[in-house]
Simulated scan of single mutants.
Amino acid sequence: MLGLFKRYGFAAVVAVGLGLITLVVVGKTLFDSLGGEGAATAAPPGADRGGGGGGGGAPNVLAATTTMHTFTDGLQALGSAQARESIVLTPKVADTIRALRFDSGDRVRRGQVLVEMSSVEQAADMAEARAANDAAQEELRRYQELFERGFASQARLDTVRAAADATEARLNAGGSRIADRTIRAPFAGIVGLRTASPGQFMRPGDQIGTLDDVSEIKLDFDVPETQLARVTQGVEIIARTAAYPDRVFTGRIANVDSRVDPTTRTVRVRAMLPNADEVLRPGMLLTVEVRSNPRQALAIPEIAILDQADGAYVYRVVAREGGQAVDLVRIQTGQRAGGMAEVLEGLSVGDRVITEGVQSVRPGQPVQLGEPPATGDAAQQLPLRPRG
């Protein structure tokens, strides 16, 4: 016998243990099936589990009131910022720089002299042309008097007048050559980095600097041709940039290109963004949202929605004898943006829907609500806080 126990004793102990575990599990199952008072059942949202409380009293929940909110048909795109006006400062003639009248980052006014090229030879030619013109104009004046007194012929007067006109034209040409050696700001703006120095030889096309008017920003972006109806002139857009993640820049569509790109099947759209503080700079990449078809619609917080395979549901708070209860309501939603959802069917203005505590309630169950939310636009309403 001792040998048999040593041989089969461990297996016997294991078998007895498994038997005890089986008895405990079967006993608990029978107890639950006989209607134990503390047993709870679970069902997915929307299942009909009857009315009545859940054995644990009315749970605390948070609710929000449906209100009217502004929705738009959003269209997303990427855009590139450009200055309202922008030029590259470059000389018209090949010569050395005599003087630079600006420094990097300077704000300049329209007509201000920025660059002066060497013009010693042109100044001498200008002085010679001015002297010749003065002499020719004086001679014309004398012959005009002689002609009026009858001492000069018409032919001689015409010859003198032609010579005076020629000298005046040479004077104007000399002035134009000198003007070509002076670069002035064609508009007010900010000068970029200076890339040349006094005494440096420059040719036409060589860059001395840049000038940008950034009081407004032109924002160009492409949209599919199928969305052309949404991007008409005057439609509001909002833009964001990674450089200023906490800011939103608002503008409007100014122009839509007259042609669709046959390769990409997109059309170029240009919006104008005010830039009074000049934080936006040419070349920035911005994300664009076109806000077309603005409308007022019934809205609820998006967190109140229970998305199921057969549709969207919410728990609506209703008045019952002795307190508040909830009903499961099927709704039809539209746009969702900024944490709010557009409600097309199923709710009315003023209805209250559960936003927190959804998992602890079931249809027909009494609930205890927190304090009313702060008044204001639905997008800014705070969730209710339960009472202490």
Rank of each mutant, 00 (worst) to 15 (best):
L2R: 13
L4T: 08
F5N: 12
Y8A: 05
F10E: 10
A12G: 15
V14M: 15
G19D: 13
L23R: 13
K28D: 09
F31S: 10
L34P: 00
G35W: 12
P45G: 05
P59F: 11
N60S: 11
V61R: 12
L62R: 14
F71V: 03
L75Y: 05
A77L: 01
R84N: 13
V88T: 13
V93A: 06
D95W: 05
D95E: 14
F102C: 06
G105P: 05
D106V: 03
G111P: 03
V113F: 04
L114N: 00
S118C: 00
S118H: 04
Q122T: 01
D125V: 12
R130H: 09
A132K: 13
N133Y: 12
D134A: 15
Q137W: 07
E139I: 06
E139P: 02
R142D: 06
Q144A: 09
Q144N: 02
A155F: 06
A155W: 02
L157Q: 14
V160T: 10
A162I: 15
D165S: 13
A169L: 07
A173V: 07
G174T: 04
T182I: 15
R184Q: 05
P186G: 09
A196I: 00
R203M: 07
P204I: 02
P204E: 03
V214T: 08
V214A: 00
E216Y: 07
V223E: 01
V223M: 12
P224E: 07
L228W: 01
A254N: 05
D261R: 06
R265S: 07
L273S: 04
P274K: 01
N275T: 08
D277G: 02
D277A: 07
V279K: 05
V279N: 06
L285M: 11
L285R: 11
L286W: 02
E289K: 10
R291M: 15
N293V: 15
Q296D: 12
Q296A: 08
L298A: 03
P301Q: 04
P301H: 04
A309K: 08
D310V: 01
A312P: 01
V314K: 02
R316D: 02
V318I: 13
V318C: 03
G322D: 00
Q324L: 11
V329F: 08
I331C: 07
I331D: 06
R336T: 12
G338T: 11
M340N: 05
M340E: 09
D351W: 05
V353G: 03
G357V: 11
V361E: 08
R362E: 00
G370P: 12
P373V: 12
T375F: 11
D377E: 10
A379H: 13
L382G: 01
P383T: 03
P386R: 12
R387F: 13
